[in-house]
């Protein structure tokens, strides 16, 4: 299969109107995600609720290959039942265990529908993992978290990228979040 490397063919930039004006229109094939990137991401940024980045091709015409939005978050162990909390805490050095651990939320991810099937989503996740372990990172951040759409394709994607379920079952998660539309998943940046 032909390959496409984000690192080789693209540049990553904060997503703004200048990018939209200088790039071909973007669609990942999901209406909600497209709408978010087209109309809402700027507002999120202005309100300091999320920052969106894009990978665009270096060659012209510039094509937006992928977009993703990040926000600060945390994993609060008070929202976990005792056995899940104990299981989760095994990730953490005994002397540093607490009620809350810093995390970065991957709020949205979209890959250009014309470039799906090139492993770009996983390349993106791999980049984010490394980016948050990079020495220039400004804050302590132990986990990546994602509230993944509860469908087999999306869950499989995050499982393949070594994310784990915060709650063992949908039922357990529903007790805390009152919905089974999404599943909270995390990746330990120490692993």
């Amino acid at each position: 299969m032909e390959s496409f490397s984000l690192y080789e063919h693209c540049v990553m930039l904060p997503y703004d109107n200048k990018i939209k004006e200088n790039s071909l229109p973007f669609s990942c094939g999901n209406y909600d995600l497209d709408d978010f990137f087209q109309n809402e991401s700027e507002l999120y940024e202005k309100e300091l609720l999320g920052k969106t980045y894009c990978w665009i091709t270096e060659s012209r015409p510039h094509r937006i290959v992928a977009l993703f939005t990040l926000a600060n978050d945390s994993i609060k162990t008070i929202n976990l039942d005792k056995s899940t909390r104990n299981r989760f805490n095994r990730n953490i050095n005994n002397s540093k265990r607490g009620r809350s651990y810093p995390a970065a939320l991957i709020g949205r991810i979209g890959v250009n529908k014309g470039l799906q099937g090139f492993n770009i989503g996983s390349q993106l996740i791999d980049f984010i993992k490394k980016w948050f372990r990079h020495e220039d990172n400004k804050t302590g951040c132990r986990f990546l978290v994602v509230d993944a759409y509860n469908n087999p394709r999306t869950l499989k994607f995050y499982e393949n990228n070594n994310f784990k379920y915060l709650y063992r079952t949908e039922e357990e998660e529903e007790l805390y979040f009152k919905t089974t539309m999404t599943r909270m998943m995390y990746f330990d940046l120490k692993k």
Binding site: M12, F127, E135
Partner: peptide, 11 residues
């Protein structure tokens, strides 16, 4: 580390 440095530099 170099990989990430390159991305940030290109950006």
């Amino acid at each position: 580390k170099n990989q990430i440095d390159n991305v940030l530099m290109k950006s």
